[in-house]
């Protein structure tokens, strides 16, 4: 029987040009890693069709310990106040190796 440990999964949907800024925040707030997939859809910013790359969205996934979530959320909140469109939602998830989510990634 494999033991699972609780972590938080933070999801962010936003425009692709914001990727570098988000990654900078991740580094600053001690995120251990991230996954980004290209996305399209529709919502409060209208249709994001990703036609010829002109209005591409990204879906960003970050797993992190609960005690680090709030600082990162604060930084996202500041971006939203500046006018960036971000859809943010947090899941409770269970992971196999919690130590993976403690140390920041190397480049």
């Amino acid at each position: 029987m494999v033991t699972l440990y609780p972590e938080k999964l933070l999801n962010i949907i936003t425009i692709d040009s914001l990727e570098d800024k988000l990654v900078d925040s991740f580094k600053k707030y001690g995120v251990s890693g991230y996954t980004i997939v290209r996305a399209r859809g529709a919502g409060s910013s209208g249709l994001q069709a990703d036609m010829s790359g002109f209005d591409a969205n990204i879906l960003v996934k970050v797993i992190l310990p609960e005690d680090r979530v709030q600082n990162l959320l604060d930084s996202l909140e500041r971006k939203i106040r500046k006018g960036y469109h971000l859809t943010v939602f947090v899941h409770d998830v269970q992971v196999m190796r919690p130590e993976k989510f403690n140390t920041p990634w190397h480049e």
Partner: peptide
Amino acid sequence: EDKAQMADDDDENN
């Protein structure tokens, strides 16, 4: 107040 909050934001590159 907003401005003060924005000033300590993490994206200096902007």
